[in-house]
């Protein structure tokens, strides 16, 4: 059989009668999905933004209560708000770059690839934009509280401070490790898949 025979067989097939195109049901499903996605996005954005704002407000209040000695808390608040702001900014950037459902196949693959690369870049540099500012703010809190404590108080005990810093270091190193793991286990395979798809599309052979 040659190509023309297969084309003939293909074009002789009747219009299938699979799933129904029930407009009312589709509308309902579309609106339900749309609502669900919008709600999920709003909850995520709100959680991310409010967690930072709440932490900054609590620490700001704590610093304010300490009086003049609490001035380093201004830095802590700025660092936390900076991280929260970066989160939100990145979300908006990602949403702006999204392509519509009717983009060409190549445009869609390129857009997915760009999004995956952006996520990889963010996770690989998480130490710079997330872990370092948070770790720095934690050190500032421990140091400020320790400096203000009286000599017999636990907060001033070098063993306590050393233990606390070690604990924070371990927690932040764990966070860094988890992000690396996500890159290698999830992002890299998807990236490879998309790159393969793109290379197949643009292959000259």
């Amino acid at each position: 059989m040659n190509w023309n025979d297969w084309e003939f067989i293909w074009r002789r097939q009747k219009a299938p009668v699979g799933a129904d195109a029930d407009i009312e049901r589709l509308k309902e499903a579309f609106e339900a999905t749309h609502r669900m996605q919008a709600r999920a996005l709003m909850v995520r954005d709100f959680t991310e933004a409010s967690a930072g704002v709440l932490a900054a407000a609590a620490l700001g209040f704590f610093g304010y209560r300490m009086g003049r000695a609490g001035w380093p808390f201004v830095l802590v608040v700025a660092l936390i708000l900076g991280v929260a702001g970066f989160f939100i900014l990145e979300r908006f950037r990602a949403r702006r770059r999204r392509v519509g459902p009717s983009a060409t196949v190549l445009e869609r693959v390129e857009a997915d690839l760009a999004e995956m690369r952006r996520q990889r870049r963010l996770l690989m540099s998480v130490a710079v934009w997330y872990i370092a500012p948070i770790f720095l703010s934690e050190i500032i809190v421990v140091a400020t509280v320790g400096a203000r404590a009286r000599s017999w108080e636990l907060q001033r005990d070098p063993v306590f401070i050393g233990g606390m810093l070690l604990f924070l270091l371990i927690v932040n190193a764990w966070a860094w490790h988890i992000n690396r793991r996500v890159v290698h286990k999830r992002i890299d395979p998807r990236l490879a898949e998309l790159e393969k798809l793109r290379n197949e599309l643009l292959s000259e052979r």
Binding site: A19, A21, I23, A29, F30, H34, G100, P101
Partner: peptide
Amino acid sequence: EQEIMLQVWGS
């Protein structure tokens, strides 16, 4: 098919 129809409707 349902997913495609949903996307076609949405678009």
